[in-house]
Amino acid sequence: MVEQWDRQDDARRIGSRPKTVAEYYALEQPLLMPLPDEPFETGRVFTPRVDRYGQIPVRTNR
């Protein structure tokens, strides 16, 4: 389903712009740097607990 959504988004136009999202990406792609060879973790796993107010503290946020 995600691949289908990607294809649909590629055909989308933003506002009244003359090109589709895919066409703009094709212009920008050669300017992008390659991904690094080493993996980089972009997320963290937390096991928060719900307090008596129904809030879940994660780091400094509730």
Rank of each mutant, 00 (worst) to 15 (best):
M1E: 10
M1R: 00
M1G: 10
V2Q: 02
V2K: 07
E3I: 14
E3N: 08
Q4E: 10
Q4Y: 03
Q4D: 01
Q8L: 10
Q8Y: 00
D10L: 01
D10F: 06
A11R: 05
G15I: 02
S16F: 02
S16V: 06
R17D: 12
P18M: 01
K19Q: 04
K19W: 00
K19Y: 02
V21I: 00
V21A: 01
E23H: 08
E23S: 08
Y24F: 13
Y24H: 15
Y25T: 09
A26E: 15
A26T: 15
E28S: 14
E28Q: 11
Q29K: 04
Q29H: 10
Q29Y: 12
L31C: 04
L32C: 13
M33W: 00
P34K: 00
L35T: 08
L35P: 02
P36W: 06
F40G: 13
T42N: 12
R44N: 12
R44A: 15
F46C: 08
F46E: 13
F46W: 12
T47A: 04
T47P: 01
P48F: 02
V50L: 15
R52A: 14
R52D: 15
G54E: 08
G54D: 09
Q55N: 11
I56D: 06
I56Q: 03
I56M: 13
V58H: 01
R59T: 11
T60P: 06
T60M: 11
T60S: 11
T60E: 04
N61P: 00
R62K: 11
